[in-house]
């Protein structure tokens, strides 16, 4: 197979300061309130992220010592609910490179990794340690190593799971659609064998592959 194009900067390792958000079940409606999801652009969401909470005095994201932090430490079940990718764009536009939690909403995590926001799960005790240290010290830093599959801080190292394909995409700066399109022939072959009775919204459309009809299958 021909190697895929490499349009993005490889992402292998990141070190940054942290923001501790000690709340569980932070759904994507909280990360990105609905009114901002009416936008048709994919960037410029930094003003909108956590909008409802940011007006609360003392909200951790707005603490002066947290400016420039790039790693969000979140409570369990972060990013549950709506599939809105705007939540990921908001965190990324704010400047986050990684979000760590003991458990994520599935769609959020997938959206995040597709946007190269490193949503990585660590065991609960690890999260608790990181959170406590970050709460005490705004200059506390962690290092996320995509290649090694570890998060390190102050001499502690924890492993995270990352599927092989995502790791490969991140480490090489590949675009996942370009990677899949290299398999266009296999997709085409599959499509000519789909059962003929499956619904089609526009059966007359020129994109419909010549499928076998009921007569041909007998």
């Amino acid at each position: 197979m021909t190697p895929p194009p490499q349009p993005l900067r490889p992402l292998a390792r990141h070190t940054g300061r942290t923001v501790p958000l000690r709340r569980s079940n932070v759904d994507t409606d909280q990360i990105m309130p609905a009114e901002f999801c009416k936008r048709v652009t994919k960037s410029g969401f930094e003003d909108a992220v956590f909008h409802r909470w940011r007006s609360t005095p003392g909200f951790v994201l707005e603490e002066p010592g947290r400016a420039g932090a790039t790693v969000l430490l979140a409570g369990p079940d972060f990013g549950t609910g709506s599939s809105r990718e705007h939540a990921v764009w908001g965190l990324r536009d704010w400047g986050f490179v990684a979000v760590l939690s003991s458990r994520f909403g599935d769609i959020f995590r997938r959206n995040a990794l597709k946007n190269r926001l490193l949503a990585l799960a660590l065991p609960e005790p690890a999260m608790d340690r990181l959170m406590t240290r970050s709460e005490r010290d705004p200059s506390f830093e962690v290092t996320v190593d995509v290649a090694a599959g570890t998060v390190g801080a102050d001499g502690d190292v924890w492993e995270f799971d990352l599927d092989e394909r995502t790791r490969w995409l991140l480490l090489n700066g590949y675009d996942d659609i370009a990677v899949t399109l290299r398999e266009a022939e296999s997709i085409e072959a599959y499509e000519t064998q789909r059962p003929y009775w499956l619904p089609s919204i526009r059966p007359d459309h020129p994109s419909v592959p010549r499928a076998r009809t009921a007569q041909e299958t007998t």
Partner: peptide, 15 residues
Amino acid sequence: GVGTSDVEHVLATQT
């Protein structure tokens, strides 16, 4: 359900 990146992936590849 999927996010917008996957919507684009499905539009382009149907997979």
